[in-house]
Every structure is written in C-alpha cells, then in structure tokens.
C-alpha cells in the first residue's frame, strides 16, 4: 500500500484532519511514504512536530504507536522484554512433571512470554501503522544504536526467536528539539524536515481552524502580536501552540479586541519567563 499519491494529496488530506501543512512539509511527508523511509522532524517546541505524525495517522486511518523517549530509556522499554515473572511461574508449575529442561526452555521463550514494546509492536502489526518516536534527542546515545536496525531494515533480532521482519512497513516519524546532535548514522537513514514558525497568513489559518469561534479580526491581531513578539530577542519565543492557547484565552475572557491593555493582561499565556515579560512590555510600549 502506498500512503499518498502526490504531495498535493498530502496537503488536502492533512488539511481535512485540521493540519495545515506548507508545501515543503507536504512534499517531505509524501516522500517519507513513497520511499518508505523514516522522517526526522526537527524544530523549536510547539510548532506541530508531534501533531504532524498524529495528522498522518488520522488522514490515512492508520493506528498510531507512540514511543515517548526519555533519559534512561532502554531496550526493555523500547523494544521487547521477556516476562520474567510469568516465566518463573511456568517453571515452578512444571516442576512436578517429568518434562525435560530442553522442553521447558523451548516453552518459556515463546510469544506467550514476550512483552512487546512500541518498536516491536509497530513492526509486527499487519494493519497500516504510524510509528511516532517522540523527542528522540532526549534518549541516550545507545538507544540510537538500537533504532538503527529497526529504522533501516524494519526488523528486530531477538536471540531466542530469531529475526522478526516487518509484516508491513510502518510510517515512521521521529521528532527532536535539537537539544542534542543526533548521530550521523541515524540522520543518514532518515529524511529530514525542519519545521519553523509559519508566516502570518498560515498561522492565522491555523489559529482559526483550531479555534473556530474566534473572530477573524481578532485572529489577525493575535497572530500579528505573536509575530512582533518573535522579533524580540526572547528566551522562549511564543510557539504556534501558544498562539492557539492565547486565542482560546481571549474567547474564555470574552475579549473582542486585542488592545494594549488586553495584551498586557494576558501576556502570561504566551511568555513564560519574567525577563521576557519585561522586555515585551518595554518594547511594545504596553504600559505608557
């Protein structure tokens, strides 16, 4: 099965699920499906990296298998693990029988005692699957090595069972905040996409599609103010997710016009550092 037939189709189908992709994103997403290669998405926090994977799964009707990476993630959490306790029970239960060691040994290393973790799950599924490996930069370098076999050949080697190959190649999306350089070996196997803050036009469309109750004029004001904030040298520039939050806040507070006072009152929704606040107030002349 091919995932999409053309970049244009990607744009349409993602838009239908509420994800507005720019041409580069659509082209790359299409290529990831057509070449069956993993897609590495990098960019600042809150620009829709994870959302892209979810949107692909919604658009294609595939199930989403998610592996959330964190420091200290290991093989047992990412790939598979033997159910040690169950194996122990099994051995104890058969102790009375005259079963030979060889039989027991064969018996306890079977599917029944295998706990599949996200990577193995995604490979063994025979329905279409989107595998999301989230925040891959948070893991240790060893886990990257683990990913290499999975991502290049879509197979997993379990010493007791042999090599399990993918029944059907999943659509793999890796996301990263670039807090650490990923290894060249991993990058080489992936297609690369850098998501950045969108232009004002697109951002307004995104805000409006996420918060349909918002008046178009106010949406324009929100997006323009956010764009001005991003121009300042801030520690954490506001992301798309934060513009959407801001729009929701305005709805909740029933603010119909985003004037200086309204911006000042609700600035906490978009800026999360005290020094950023001060700078924004000073530069945008919010308090006269």
């Amino acid at each position: 099965m091919s995932w999409f037939t053309s970049p244009g189709e990607v744009t349409e189908r993602l838009a239908a699920t509420g994800y507005l992709a720019d041409p580069a994103t659509s082209t790359t997403a299409y290529l990831a499906g057509a070449l069956e290669k993993p897609l590495l998405v990098e960019g600042p926090a809150g620009v829709g990296k994870t959302e892209l994977a979810k949107a692909v799964s919604r658009a294609t009707g595939a199930d989403l298998v998610r592996l959330q990476c964190y420091e200290g993630l290991d093989e047992a959490r990412a790939l598979y693990e033997w159910n040690y306790k169950k194996q122990l029970l099994r051995i104890q239960a058969t102790q009375g029988d005259a079963a030979s060691w060889a039989e027991t040994h064969d018996d306890i290393f079977t599917d029944e005692f295998l706990l599949t973790r996200p990577l193995l799950t995604a490979i063994r599924r025979d329905e279409p699957t989107v595998l999301l490996i989230d925040e891959v930069d948070k893991t240790d370098v060893e886990v990257e090595g683990l990913l290499l076999e999975v991502l290049s050949d879509f197979q997993v080697t379990i010493p007791e069972l042999g090599t399990l190959s993918a029944v059907r190649r999943p659509y793999v999306v890796l996301t990263s905040n670039a807090s650490r350089e990923l290894s060249e070996a991993l990058k080489r196997r992936c297609l690369y996409l850098h998501l950045d803050y969108p232009d004002e036009e697109r951002e307004r469309e995104i805000v409006l599609s996420q918060v349909p109750d918002l008046e178009e004029r106010v949406a324009g004001q929100v997006v323009a103010t956010v764009a001005r904030l991003r121009d300042l040298e801030l520690k954490k520039p506001p992301s798309i997710a934060e513009s959407v939050d801001w729009a929701r806040t305005l709805i909740a507070l029933e603010i119909r016009d985003l004037d200086d006072k309204a911006v000042d009152d609700t600035l906490g929704v978009v800026l999360k550092h005290a020094s950023d606040h001060e700078r924004a107030i000073r530069e945008l002349r919010l308090r006269k």
Partner: peptide, 15 residues
Amino acid sequence: DTVHAAYAATLVKRQ
C-alpha cells in the same frame, strides 16, 4: 520548490 524540498529532505540533515 518540489525539487528543492526533495533535495533538502534527503541531503541536509542539520538546520
């Protein structure tokens, strides 16, 4: 632009 995006996705792995 499509060609540009395709080259970028496959060749440039660092922003």
